[in-house]
Amino acid sequence: MNLNHFTQSTYIAGFSGGLLIGFAAAMLVLFNGRIAGISGILGGLLQAGKEDKIWRVMFLLGLIAAPFIYRITFGLPAVTIEARTIKLIVAGLLVGIGTRYASGCTSGHGVCGISRGSIRSIAATLTFMMAGFITVYLTRHLLGI
């Protein structure tokens, strides 16, 4: 395992971004009494009969505004999306259905749930990370797809 090609600055950026994410999660629960879980916030909008839709829309508008504000202040960092259309569709469907059945994703379980000390969220996080590790191993190293 060779870690030299990752500069220290990527860890600092990761940690700083993490602090912001944690701060946002703390603010949402302290001010709104709500969990900052993106799949839950999105899912609630797609569920007929749910009444509390406005705060969800407002949260999403904030999330959507983020890249615009980041772009005019710092310029957006370059990203690489390797997956082709078919992979994006399959992956998107799995992420959409999976996170709703699991009642959470990286934010709801991984950040908020672990911060609450929820065993359920720790189990969910270990499960999706393990599934991710195995999937990347299979696609990248065994099957080459």
Binding site: L94, G98, T127
Partner: peptide, 23 residues
Amino acid sequence: LLLGSTAFGVGWGIAGFCPGPAV
């Protein structure tokens, strides 16, 4: 919880996107 998280992890591994960053 466990099957849902597994499906999510597989999708995450295929594309490298989870819900927040994708939006």
